[in-house]
Design a protein around this nucleic acid. Sequence first.
DNA 1: ATTGTCCGTTGGTTATTATACAATCGTGTT
DNA 2: AACACGATTGTATAATAACCAACGGACAAT
Lengths: 248, 248
Amino acid sequence: MSEIQSLARGLKLLELLAAGDDDVGVTELAGQMGIDKSSVSRLVQTLAAYGYAEQDPTSRRYRLGPQIVRLSRSLLTRMPLRDEAKPFLRTLVNRTGECAHIAILAQGQALYIDQVESPASLRVTTGVGTLAPLHCTALGKCLLTFDSTAEMPAELPPFTARTITDHKSLAAHLEQTRRQGYAVDDEEYDYGVRCVAAPVYDFRGKAVGAIGISGPAGRVTLERMADFATIVKEVSQSLSDRMSFNRS
Amino acid sequence: MSEIQSLARGLKLLELLAAGDDDVGVTELAGQMGIDKSSVSRLVQTLAAYGYAEQDPTSRRYRLGPQIVRLSRSLLTRMPLRDEAKPFLRTLVNRTGECAHIAILAQGQALYIDQVESPASLRVTTGVGTLAPLHCTALGKCLLTFDSTAEMPAELPPFTARTITDHKSLAAHLEQTRRQGYAVDDEEYDYGVRCVAAPVYDFRGKAVGAIGISGPAGRVTLERMADFATIVKEVSQSLSDRMSFNRS
DNA sequence: ATTGTCCGTTGGTTATTATACAATCGTGTT
DNA sequence: AACACGATTGTATAATAACCAACGGACAAT
């Protein structure tokens, strides 16, 4: 498990560039990495040479480059689940009037790999590429409950007053999720936002992702929750059937 | 301009992973790179350690990892143009009934950074992250004409029978584009697809991107083209005004 | 206008580091 | 069951990238 140091440093630099809200200078990067400026300068030059970073001509500071977006597209378009799911997400939007999302497990979090927006002017979108915690989102809970490769997060940080923050309560909640076959997020991640999600299975019966809807609490009321759940379960079931059919 | 070799190799590996339609083995990668398998093995291990690649547990082959998608999101959300453009793209869809796109210049090509789908069942979408040639797409021609940092492509490869493939014709066509203030793609990139696009300017009057619509030739007829052009120019003008207003 | 400071880049040297070759281990195959 | 293929690990050498120091350009202040 020997790491290639300079590659590792380059990748860390990419993360630092992504973390900063603005362009970042070489000296600042060097400080954060704890290595010499000259090393950083050459590393970011290499990143820039391949399009993974770019330098502002005037400020000479660096930011992420467009190559990243290209790679991301390659990755997303190569996901069979994503392509198959698209029309089902549209169905969800049509039947519920809320935004629909699909997520998979990645690095112990829920990674949103696609989204279809609702026509409503007040809507709850989550950008493709977003990573969200498993313990307080509907999609995350689905993955945690049904995807056997998911591990219980060690920490359960609160995001709202309703976030479940102790493992015992979460275990009970996930047990209920398992029985119901769907997961709910009742303003546990964002105030005023409720979500419903259900797992998607491949042809082996293994959970490979989750789809769901999210909307403002004013429209996604607790009374209507059961109806939403029925719809989401139906659509996720159809998608699972389709995934089985293709058997890829 | 000294490159860090191992970082450069790692980045090249990412591209190879993105290029393959399926997971790729270490030996194959080593062959394509012209270096030893062991080197590749350690490089991809490092990529995997940081989430930029991942290994299939059974086949032991590698593919791109989810970290890429995260970085892509960071990059896209940090583009002020993209955020500002979103509602204007929606306006375009509402007024034309066709899909709306926004692109910027990246690496000598048009990079699609956002998209809003039309409600029509037959629609022409171009995924976010797509790179398209400058000489045969409406957005690309806009960038080529109005973005002073764009360079004329050396090669003008044909994609359809209508693709403009010689520099002289293209120059005349771009001259007309400049006079009109908008660009047209009349089935020059994809058969059956027409597009109209207009440039977006920042507060300095510099073109920073282009927005446009694309749709099936059956709906985007040559007769309606002028109407579409008017709408696209209006909306791009509004967006430019808004970009100037914010002055960021 | 001139000096001074800050920041990114480049030169050069040494020791670290990554490379290539060879061996190993694990899988799937014949 | 033996084999063949491919990924991984061990190891010595030589290349390479790290650090230090100097340079150059931009901007600010005097």
